[in-house]
Design a protein around this nucleic acid. Structure first.
Length: 800
RNA sequence: GCGGGUGUGGCGGAAUUGGCAGACGCACUAGACUUAGGAUCUAGCGGUUUAUCCGUGCAGGUUCAACUCCUGUCACCCGCACCA
């Protein structure tokens, strides 16, 4: 085994001393900006998943340098967050100390893996010089009405004692401790991301994201088109609005359903005879866990409001109103018109409560189930006979608008972003509460608003931030009137710092602005962003939102931050399960580097399977990669001094260059490496190879296993390192052998193969095929119907 | 329920996009060199009744030719989930 320890530390030192990976702000050069998701520096150190995530773009970054690009390939640390804070609570060590220690561990690991990150631009989201600008962006949003406070029911984790966004409490479970989340009323900060829903959707059209990434974002935003319709209350001079995607089914409405907490219920509680029942139902609905609600999907519950009725605006019919938890306050208007004939949920509800079912679309059998397909409109007066859904919806909407009883509307599933956490280890929200002036922004010149030093990180009572206990932090003067005031004590969620970090890499030390515009114009957009699928709906949407906002206020020059986004698949444990400490199937990259070296580790994570799919770790398979690199190393003993390819290798060399180059660009690293193995095996079976033969292999391998490549390059006498050496190119004319073997089939079954000259004449091929002895056996005495010849590929003789 | 993905040897995975299924690697078997081998080299390695036929989750179809296209179906994984 080659001495990887010596070789790897030697070249890591060389690259560092020669500042090989520093991006330069030379705007005359063509640029390439490659971005990987920066890590959360956990105490456990780097995970093999990190290695896989970074190795992918690392290959591209190294290839781009060899292609002459000015490459920006930065890294940093997303260091605010709960694990560090929980660790601080447990051990009473300050998060600052823990974070610094973890960052050092990560940095050492990054260095010993030989990644070509520009370490002069490292950023740390917990550095006040960084979060100064996170706070600055928040204030800009506040100024523009995009950051606001509202009182609502929030997802609250009783265990972590924090308010969670919908994103952080998917499935009703806390994202951090996985305990059940409950609903609690609270004043919270929101970022009005819904205002950007359309812009975020539009922006997807101009970026090159993997199709499933785009789709997930579209689903998350969840745009739906429909209409608001106003329903008057019977006997009361008031009305309420509903949202529907099928206004054309208005004639089929036989009842209304409201979310249990709909405000109009309280407004007219004196008119309601069974208000106690409603209060009781509300209580029960709150108690239901997410699990129960999803399991009991078919079993609709509800209460009829005795005393309130609605009037159908298109036919004047008086219809009953129910409350039910299948209608939610958070979507649409919190009330729906129910068309049981054509909606499964309404159908279930109507069946259970014995409500009329009136069909308005022909087709199906509504005695058995709701009909949700298309068909002829019936029982619908002016819509009768229409068959096209779009047309009937349009006609109804124009009718509603004419009569001023409704209007076209758009709704989104995406909700505003709950933006505060009751935690210490986050960016303080720079807002001051003054009894006279209300909410006042901390003046820009007072940023950063630094976290105060404290020694007790336990959350305050009743879900208050630990900062609320620090009087010297809380008490301040109002910047407007100078009177006594109090600070906001909540901090920002972890998603804040990561929403704009790629901008700061471009100008990491700027203390006057977030980043210099000329530099932003040169480097943006990020050419290629690689990360995990798990961040596609949160981080990726949030950062696109912030970026678009910054564009709108003229701080960044592009609408979209990332031109291209890809994703790596998970590295599973050897048992095929997701790696986790509790399962004990975690692979430590440090140990792999100790035993095999960084190049083997990097090569293996790229070789193990298709990059975008998950793939289990295999302790044996890594040995194969180790053998491969050993073989490459040992080849240097066979090298003879010649600057041209060995003639018999010309074709395979050109083929390999083509395949490897293309595979790298398409992130098909596994097949690229297998091509390099084939070339290595070819060389291995030859007594000697030329310097030129060897150099091609070394250069193609360089992005994957750079230490070894550098060492071999210098071993064969080259003085210049490989970082900026030219990437090999191929000659299209030399990628097919002059003589090749093609298959001969009879009736589609393989019978023989023949050797032909490249681009041989059809007649010659047919003749050779028919004369081959194995083929003869199968065609003798039979009639040849036709012969299919695919040039340089295959011959198929069809006989009867 | 909706959306997306995946199904190929003992294992990880290839297949130029309709053209020799199983590349490359692991594991395994036999041999060589060795005091020794968990090092290295050489050969073999889908199944089989071995000059044969069968094989890419399953059942059909299109085609001279199907892992690849079409129809139906099953299983697993990942999102979202009573979104009106």
């Amino acid at each position: 085994m080659y001495n990887f320890k010596e070789i790897e530390s030697k070249w890591q030192k060389y690259w560092k001393e020669h500042e090989c990976f520093l991006a330069s702000d030379d705007f005359s050069k063509k640029k390439w900006y490659g971005l990987v998701e920066f890590p959360y520096p956990s105490g456990a150190g780097m995970h093999v998943g990190h290695i896989k995530a970074y190795s992918g773009l690392e290959v591209i970054a190294r290839k781009r340098r060899m292609e002459g690009y000015n490459v920006l390939f930065p890294i940093g640390f997303d260091a605010f967050g709960l694990p560090t804070e929980n660790y601080a609570i447990k051990t009473n060590i300050h998060p600052r100390i823990v974070t610094d220690k973890n960052i050092k561990t990560f940095t050492d690991q990054l260095n010993r893996t030989g990644f070509s990150f520009d370490m002069s631009r490292v950023i740390d989201t917990t550095d006040s010089n960084y979060y100064k600008w996170t706070q600055w962006i928040f204030l800009k949003m506040f100024e523009n009405g995009l950051a606001f406070k509202d009182k609502t029911l929030v997802n609250y984790c009783p265990s972590c004692k924090v308010v969670l966004s919908n994103e952080d409490s998917q499935g009703g479970k806390c994202d951090i401790c996985h305990n059940q989340v409950i609903q609690k009323e609270k004043e919270v900060w929101y970022l009005r991301i819904t205002k950007y829903a359309d812009k975020l959707l539009e922006g997807l059209k101009e970026v090159d994201y993997l199709p499933n990434i785009k789709l997930q974002q579209e689903n998350w935003i969840g745009k739906s088109k429909g209409a608001f319709v106003k329903f008057k209350l019977d006997g009361i001079d008031d009305e309420f609005k509903i949202y529907t995607t099928r206004p054309d089914t208005l004639f089929g409405v036989t009842f209304m359903v409201m979310a249990p907490e709909h405000p109009i219920i309280d407004k007219y509680k004196d008119n309601i005879n069974n208000f106690d029942d409603i209060v009781q139902y509300r209580k029960e609905a709150l108690k239901k866990t997410e699990f129960e609600r999803t399991q009991l999907i078919k079993d609709k519950t509800g209460v009829k409001i005795d005393g309130l009725r609605a009037i159908n605006p298109v036919n004047g019919k008086v219809i009953p109103i129910y409350i039910s938890d299948y209608v939610m306050m958070g979507y649409g208007t919190g009330a729906i018109m129910a068309v049981p004939a054509h909606d499964e949920r309404d159908y279930d509800f109507a069946k259970k409560f014995g409500i009329d079912i009136i069909p308005v679309i022909e087709g199906g059998d509504i005695t058995k189930e709701a009909y949700t397909g298309d068909g002829n409109m019936i029982n619908s007066e002016f819509l009768n006979g229409m068959t096209n859904k779009k047309d009937s919806i349009a006609k109804m909407i124009s009718y509603l608008e004419d009569k001023n009883i409704g209007e076209a509307a758009v709704q989104y599933k995406m909700k505003d972003w709950a933006f505060n956490r009751q935690r210490y280890w986050g960016e303080p929200i720079p807002i001051i509460y003054c009894e006279h002036c209300g909410m006042v922004a901390v003046p820009y010149e007072d940023l950063p608003l630094k976290l105060p030093e404290i020694d007790n990180f336990e959350p305050g009572t009743d879900g208050e931030s630990p900062l609320a206990k620090i009087d010297s932090f809380v008490n301040c003067k109002c910047p407007k009137c100078g009177r006594d005031a109090k600070r906001e004590t909540d901090t920002m969620p972890q998603w804040a710092g990561s929403s704009w970090y790629y901008l700061r890499y471009i100008d990491p030390n700027n203390d006057k602005e977030l980043a210099n515009m000329d530099k932003l114009k040169y480097w943006l957009p990020v050419d290629w962003y690689n990360g995990g699928m798990e961040h596609v709906t949160r981080h990726l949407i949030y950062s696109r939102f912030w970026h678009r906002f910054l564009y709108d206020i003229g701080v960044v020059p592009t609408k979209e931050p990332y031109a291209k986004r890809t994703a790596q698949g998970l590295v599973l444990g050897p048992d095929g399960d997701k790696m986790s400490k509790s399962k004990g199937n975690v692979v430590d990259p440090n140990q792999i580097i100790d035993v095999y070296g960084a190049d083997v580790l990097r090569t293996y994570v790229l070789f193990m399977g298709e990059y975008g799919l998950e793939s289990p770790w295999n302790d044996n398979a890594i040995k194969g990669v180790s053998r491969f690199l050993d073989k490459v190393y040992n080849l240097h003993n066979k090298v003879i001094d010649s600057d041209s390819y060995t003639s018999e290798f010309e074709v395979i060399i050109n083929k390999t260059i083509k395949k490897v180059s293309e595979d790298y660009e398409n992130m098909k690293y596994n097949t690229a490496i297998s091509e390099l193995m084939k070339l290595t095996n070819t060389y291995f079976n030859s007594d000697k190879i030329t310097k030129a033969d060897y150099l091609v292999l070394i250069k193609l391998l360089n992005p994957v296993a750079p230490h070894l490549a550098e060492e071999l390059n210098s071993l064969i006498g080259n003085k210049e390192c490989l970082v900026f050496a030219s990437f090999p190119t191929y000659d299209d004319k030399k990628i097919i052998d002059d003589v090749l073997e093609i298959a001969v089939q009879v009736n589609g079954k393989l019978r023989d193969s023949i050797k032909i000259k490249k681009d041989e004449d059809r007649e010659v091929i047919e003749k050779m095929a028919k004369e081959s002895s194995n083929v003869k056996k199968h065609i003798d005495g039979k009639e040849i119907v036709k012969i299919i010849v695919v040039p340089n590929r295959i011959v198929n003789i069809v006989v009867k």
